[in-house]
Each structure stands twice: as C-alpha cells, then as structure tokens.
Design a protein around this nucleic acid. Structure first.
Lengths: 210, 210
DNA sequence: AATTGTTTTAAACAAGCGTTTAAATTACTT
DNA sequence: AAGTAATTTAAACGCTTGTTTAAAACAATT
C-alpha cells in the first residue's frame, strides 16, 4: 500500500536543515549528526530519507547550482532588451539575488573545487549561458564597433568579478571596514550603481549615459 | 644536551606538506594522516613537531595571511608614487602574486569564515592597510576633485573584486570557457591591463591616459 | 663501547564519523 | 478493533579521526 501522505514535513525539514548547514559549513565541515540536530530529528532519518550524506548533498548542490545559473541566464534570455540594458539589469538582478543568498557563491566555488568533475558533469549547465546567445550578441556588438575590443573570457571575468566578489570577500571586507552584515547588505544598493556605471562606461563605446 | 642540528628537514617537510594540503583541501577537508603521507613521514611526527593539527594549521594560516597582506600593503607604503601609479602597480603586483599563489584567496576566505573570530584577532593586520595612509590619500584626492566621489568601502570592493575574483572563480571560469590552468594564468597578463584601464578610467577624473 | 638525549616507529587510545539494524511507535485501511 | 505499512527510535556497526604511548632506532658525547 502506497500512502501518498502530505506529511512529508520530516523529509523537507531534513533537506532544508541540510541546505542551511551545507551552505554555512560546507560538505567537509559538518556531520550527519549536525544536520539531524539542525532539523531536530534522529540521525538515522537522514539516511532513511536520503540514503547517504553524499546523496543529500548532491541533491542540494544541484538545487543551488541550477538556481544560481537560472538567475544568471534569466536576463540574458530576453529578446526585448539591448545589450546595455541587459548588462544593467543583469548586474542589478545578480546582486539582488546574492543579497538574499550571500553564502551561495562561496559554497558553489568551494564544492566545485572539491568535486573537481568539471569536464562533462556541469558543462551542460555552463553552456546554458552561451546558448542564450549573449556571447554571440557581444561579438556582434564588437564587430559593429558598439563595444570595446575585449575577449569573452576577460569580459566574463569583469562582470562576474564585480557581481560575485563582494559576497565572497564580505567577511574580510566587514572586518576591515568594521561593519556588520546588515550594513554590508544595505551598502550593496549603492555598490550596484558603481559597478553598473563602471562596466558600461568601460565596455560601451558610444556613451550616452542613462 | 641541546643539539642545534641543521637537520630540521623533517619539521620543514611536514610544514610544507601541510601548507600544500591545507591550501588545496582546507582544514576540514584533510586529515593528519593526509599531511603525514604527503610529507612521507609517520603520523605521530605531525604531533611530535607541532603538538596538534590545529596548531600546525594556525602556524600556516598566519604565514599565508601575513604574506597576503604584506603583498597588498607593500605598494601602498611607497612615498615615491602618486595615487594613480600606486593603483596601477598594486593591480599588477597583486595579480602577479596571485598567479604564483592561485589557491590563496579561496583558502583565506574559507578559513576566515570557519574561524569567525573576526573582531580583534586579525583586525590589527587589517589596520595595516589603513596605516599606510592610502585611505587618507584617496580622501584627499577626492577633496581635490582628482578622483570620483565614492566611499572607501565601494572603492576597496571595486579594486579587490577585480584583482582577487579571477583566482576565486577560476574553476568555474575554466569550465565555462573550456581552458586549462596554464591558459588561464597566461590570460591574466591581458586581464591585468583591462582591470587597470577600467579602474583608472572610472576612478580618476582627469583622464590623460598612459 | 656505554651512555646520553633526540628522533622515529608501530600500535593503540577514545571520540566521532557515516551508516545499519531491529525494535518501538505511529498512521492508515479494512 | 485488528492488521498492515510507514515512520521514528535507541543502539550498535565498522571505520576514520586526532592524539598518545612506549619501545625502537639513531646520533652524539664521554
């Protein structure tokens, strides 16, 4: 008898507890018992619902990875916007998103490094970015003389650096500048404008601002 | 009898093995036996020479932390250079340095987060930056109308983002753009120029380039 | 060669790990 | 109310962890 109980709260409780713990401490930095304690359930239930710590982790990693890249790809997929608007909105959306998930960048980078199965495992996710056509769009704009001559690698790096780094280095930054998490997140509103202005000024050749 | 043997090679072997392992896997991601194996010595020797895994880690962390900040502070301490030159040289030196220590940024950020004793422990190291007078110099330049109106927090963020992020996100970047470590490091030479040009164009008001 | 102190070793320690088991409890069906 | 399946539990499993021990190997002095 298969009982389709809506009482899946234990499974969800464990998964959400694991999400919090994994994002904060990383896979190697926590134990199954940490997760069970956070969820307020018996240790055995972690394996009862998810078979192993690793399978539970993989589930959450995939979740967060997809979520992260969906957010990145979202704006680029629009047909309605020109490149400059896409970049502006991308920067704004990306920083907004990361303000709500400040631990995500470090989590993804750390665990990507740990697994190290970079070749074919996640490359289809990565290719979603190029399949939005945004790279081709940039190259066309370069051919048209609308944006500066710059390779796609450095272009990606400049954009990602300024959107993602604040959330990677925020611990250090907060220490140096003696501010707390809330002050830092509040500051990101201002920072969005600086990043947007700087990148657009640098990349786009015909500067009609705003 | 105190023997001042120059045969300290075992101690050094362990410390350098630990440095490699810690930088690659992090404190939580490796065991004492991993370190002993990397050094090619018995496990007990790790504790014989360094009392505990944690003390060995603290030694290496302090080393790397100091090394990292010395490199940052170095250029700023010069009296010979004006602000624009300082920034140019800082960017170049920083990226050169990180090309030789590509794992260092992720190591420091991960372990700073793990320890979380941000308040007074390392704040004296952090304050070395402001004690170079570079922050005051920036504020003076702002008052003189030489550089854009921007708070020190965002200014730091812009500079650090573009210098440090490439080495944090290089795993992801290498996957997306299908290149290997050597190609990535080689590309950093080009990237230095982009970063330098972009930041100087954005921050400094009177643009006489080069 | 015997004695010293230092270095290295194999083995073991308790504690914690991920995971499994088997029994107890709960929820549902008939 | 009885029986069945799903859930939860306490306890244990074998293994790895960081660390310690006690003996062996080594080096140096006398």
């Amino acid at each position: 008898m298969k009982i389709e109980n809506p009482n899946i709260s234990t499974e969800v409780k464990i998964k959400e507890a694991a999400r919090r713990i994994f994002l904060e401490k990383g896979f190697a930095g926590c134990s199954s018992r940490d997760i069970a304690a956070e969820a307020g359930v018996n240790v055995a239930l972690v394996n009862y619902y998810f078979r192993s710590k690793e399978r539970l982790f993989d589930l959450i990693f995939k979740d967060e990875f997809d979520n992260f890249f969906s957010t990145m790809v979202e704006t680029f997929s629009s047909d309605q916007l020109n490149l400059k608007e896409k970049l502006k909105i991308f920067i704004s959306h990306e920083i907004d998103f990361l303000c709500k998930h400040p631990d995500l960048p470090q989590f993804l980078l750390t665990e990507l490094k740990r697994c190290d199965d970079n070749s074919t495992e996640h490359s289809d996710k990565f290719s979603k970015i190029s399949s939005t056509g945004v790279f081709a769009e940039f190259q066309q704009a370069q051919a048209d003389g609308k944006i500066r001559e710059i390779d796609l690698l450095s272009l990606s790096l400049l954009v990602m650096s300024n959107c993602h780094y604040p959330f990677l280095g925020r611990g250090m930054i907060m220490s140096i500048h003696q501010i707390n998490e809330d002050q830092f997140l509040a500051h990101m509103e201002k920072h969005k404008e600086y990043v947007s202005e700087m990148l657009i000024n640098y990349l786009f050749i015909n500067n009609e601002n705003k």
